[in-house]
Design a protein around this nucleic acid. Structure first.
Length: 468
RNA sequence: UCCUCCUUAGCUCAGUUGGUUAGAGCACAUGACUGUUAAUCAUGGGGUCCUAGGUUCAAGUCCUAGAGGGGGAGCCA
């Protein structure tokens, strides 16, 4: 078989390569469908570079019958052939095959992917094969594009990519049950004399767990490099079984010195709009597919978010709106308690019909590190609420006063001794600063139009599921 | 974790009041067709009715428990 340099299908279909009709080329990829009759076969070939397939046309009189028979849905092949203008509808160019090699067959009786008709639930059970479908190809290409857009956005704004540790010994990073990390023999756990677990014999010499947030270490970066962001995996051991929660997810956490809450909101809004705009500009084919298959208003909704300002609203004002709302809620509206999902949805989807940034929450329902307002009752927190997915960002201006911060830690029972490294930021050269966390998969839910977070990460980790 | 719904062929689903041999579409196999687009047409093979108990002359169908999954809620990103 002639040794030709492989051309990626995206280059064939989008004309990025210098190609001419009549030239002999080579493509490699996985067979999506094969159809035809006694004398001719059409193979739809996909190599993952783009959602569209290249059509390989096979004149059966020129090929061994057994070879063609072994080319089935899912098989991987290499094909040499002449690039020609298509005689059929549906594609502009196709390949008239001259030689075909099968890299790997896919047994028709056991290969689980078919030409049609799979539910997202079924595909979740074969997560190792689902990237070969149109849907998950589109989603994971977009996942990459969003990750790239995030790095580009912050790099262009002179933020530094900062690596907070994934293993941590502080158990007060924020809300959330933690996954313990240990090298101790669980069948023979060392005990101290008073019968407690002796963590001094563990790998780090103390009790450790996977991080639930890189924020506290992120603040150390901001108080030195000025503007940083983290972008890495985050672990929460909560028994959450919802379409919006994962036990292992990715989070982006920018942290900025000299930013007050307004600067923080400006950044959050600009950042999300940039990412959505990036998807619109760079993922057109994948977006159109997802729109056709899953969400008829997807592109319209993305454009709407890019073009319209987010509503900015104080918690207290939100309570007033909800109290006057012409709608019955299951849960009572009461100043001082956190808003329920139904309340957030009312504000975002019914009242404003726009993304909403809620600020100045009661201090009792927010974390210890948030800057206290002068009213003594609220803190400079902000939650960005999106239609369908709810909270996509949570953040705040941080309390920079050592005295106020320590007082709040005492009130909330946060141990100051273990946190002395954190308090040093306030002890030495403290400064106003702010930051937030954006759930990467929740952003992906929004830009892909998917409705279950397990479908926007290759191998979802949830309670009772760590397959693959 | 709570509420609720679901589990029947490889996949998606139907299955009447508890009653004979559990059906369809797609997929697959064979055949037909010189250009298909989820190709079409004909024929054919294919079942632990989620699991374990129970009620009954008789259970895919009713009851109990369990497992897995969906949706909603809580926790949050």
């Amino acid at each position: 078989m002639k040794d030709l340099k492989r051309i990626e299908i995206i280059d064939l279909l989008q004309g990025r390569a210098t190609l001419e009709i009549g030239k002999e080329i080579c493509v490699k990829g996985w067979v999506r469908t094969k159809r035809g009759n006694k004398s001719i076969a059409f193979i739809a070939l996909n190599d993952g570079t783009i959602i569209h397939n290249i059509q390989v046309v096979v004149d059966l009189s020129k090929f061994d019958e057994d070879l063609i028979k072994r080319i089935t849905t899912g098989a991987c092949i290499r094909a040499n052939g002449t690039l020609v203008e298509s005689m059929g509808q549906g594609q502009s160019v196709e390949i008239q095959a001259t030689e075909i090699e099968i890299y790997g067959e896919a047994d028709v009786d056991t290969y689980p992917l078919q030409k049609k008709g799979h539910t997202l639930e079924f595909l979740r059970e074969i997560a190792h094969l689902r990237p070969r479908t149109n849907t998950f190809g589109a989603i994971f290409r977009m996942r990459h594009a969003m990750a790239y857009a995030i790095h580009k956005y912050y790099n262009d704004k002179r933020f530094f990519y900062w690596h907070s540790p994934l293993i941590t010994a502080s158990d007060c990073e924020g809300a959330g049950e933690m996954f313990q990390v240990t090298t101790m023999d669980l069948n023979n756990i060392p005990k101290t004399q008073d019968g407690k677990i002796d963590f001094s014999q563990d790998f780090y010499g103390k009790q450790t767990a996977l991080t639930v947030s890189g924020q506290l270490e992120g603040e150390l970066g901001a108080m030195s490099l000025g503007k940083i962001y983290t972008f890495g995996p985050t672990f929460r051991a909560e028994n959450s079984n919802t379409p919006r929660h994962l036990a292992e997810f990715w989070m982006i956490e920018p942290e900025m010195a000299f930013y007050d809450l307004n600067d923080n909101m400006d950044l959050a809004e600009d950042f999300i709009k940039y990412c959505v705009k990036y998807a619109l500009d760079n993922c057109k084919d994948d977006l159109e597919f997802l729109q056709n298959m899953y969400d008829k208003e997807l592109i319209e909704r993305l454009n709407f978010v890019v073009e319209n300002d987010f509503i900015r609203l104080k918690y207290t004002e939100a309570i007033d709106i909800l109290l006057k709302a012409d709608q019955k809620f299951e849960f009572p509206i009461d100043w001082g308690t956190d808003l329920q999902s139904e309340h957030e949805r009312y504000l975002v989807e019914k009242h404003f019909k726009k993304p909403v940034i809620l600020i100045d929450y009661p201090k009792e329902i927010k974390a210890f590190y948030m800057k206290q307002n002068e009213d003594g009752k609220t803190v400079r927190a902000m939650d960005v609420l999106f239609p369908k997915i709810g909270e996509i960002i949570g953040g705040s201006q941080r309390e920079e006063s050592l005295e106020k911060l320590m007082k709040r830690m005492d009130e909330m029972g946060v141990p100051k001794e273990e946190m002395s490294w954190y308090l040093d930021t306030r002890r030495f050269g403290s400064a106003p600063h702010s930051g937030f966390g954006l759930g990467f998969e929740r952003l992906l839910l929004f830009v892909t139009g998917m409705s279950n977070i397990r479908d926007v990460i290759p191998f979802p980790r949830t309670p009772k599921n760590a397959d693959f």
